[in-house]
Design a protein around this nucleic acid. Structure first.
Length: 274
DNA sequence: TGCCAGGTATAGG
DNA sequence: CCTATACATGGC
């Protein structure tokens, strides 16, 4: 029962789907062609086409209608990224270059559990390897998005139910017990998204870091990409390399409040130049 | 083939 | 508090 309706979403400051995907925040987007992606999220599969002012969303999975609020939120439609992209200090040539290249990158507001699990997987893995492991987990659980051949990302209960060997066969290495424990925490309600959402940034990071295998970097990525805490600035090997090269080790966070996370994403997207 | 990947837990100082 | 080290596995 797929709806034939097309939802148009204006995005303030526009979007470049290729650059957003390549900026390493989403690991399951499927490129169809330039500016067109199939995106599995929230138990649905949509086909997204970018245009001059935003995107058109087509529903590929079974649905009676398209949830406009959900996808407006997912693509952060109201924030004007073109305005933010002009924030870098003109004297900071490196950041200006990153922001120039980053035109069209938006911070996607993804599902918290999926984001947390995928970033636990991400530690000491290349982006292609992360994608492979994430797909293997989805296949292992084996529940398809209704009306499609695409596997949905598992719920906490589904992931917790996977036996040890099946999980190990997803190429997770030493992360497998971390994934299992995190799934258990959410499945049993020891940790829940509603409560996390109510916390301030510091409380949220601390709560996430109580999980085994979640340190400061993964906590920051989860807070930024799932809870939309745009001022948080995850530091990975690439960002640290940039900080050492261009900033004497630390980023001037005070200059870009409350959008340090977006500056970080512009920098990460430029990582190949480092 | 060997090196490195969107790090973290742990032990030792 | 800080630093050094082990850690599983895939991709290039």
């Amino acid at each position: 029962m797929s709806t034939s309706e097309i939802l148009h979403i204006p995005l303030k400051g526009g979007i470049d789907l290729d650059k957003t995907e390549e900026s390493g925040q989403c690991f399951r987007w499927r490129r169809i062609e330039q500016g067109v992606y199939d995106i599995p999220a929230f138990g649905q599969l949509i086909r997204v086409r970018e245009n001059w002012v935003g995107i058109n969303v087509e529903m590929l999975s079974d649905a009676d209608s398209i949830d406009a609020d959900l996808w407006n939120s997912y693509f952060d439609s109201k924030l004007n990224y073109e305005k933010i992209r002009k924030m870098p200090d003109k004297k900071d040539e490196f950041l200006c270059e990153c922001a120039k290249y980053g035109k069209g990158i938006r911070i996607i507001k993804q599902d918290p559990f999926e984001t947390l699990i995928t970033f636990i997987i991400s530690q000491r893995k290349s982006i292609p390897a992360i994608k492979t492991s994430v797909e293997k987990i989805c296949e292992a659980v084996g529940r398809k998005i209704p009306g499609t051949d695409v596997y949905d990302f598992p719920t906490a209960e589904e992931l917790y139910a996977l036996d040890e060997k099946t999980l190990a066969d997803c190429g997770l290495g030493y992360r497998a017990p971390y994934i299992h424990a995190t799934a258990e925490a959410f499945a049993h309600g020891d940790m829940n998204v509603a409560a996390l959402s109510e916390m301030n940034d510091e409380e949220l990071l601390n709560a996430l870091m109580t999980l085994k295998g979640v340190g400061i970097k993964i906590a920051n990525c989860t807070a930024l990409f799932a809870f939309h805490r745009l001022d948080l600035f995850p530091i990975d090997v690439w960002i640290q390399r940039a900080l050492d090269t261009y900033y004497d080790g630390t980023f001037p966070l005070e200059k870009y409040h409350p959008y340090n996370g977006i500056m970080q994403q512009y920098m990460f997207a430029e990582r190949h130049e480092l």
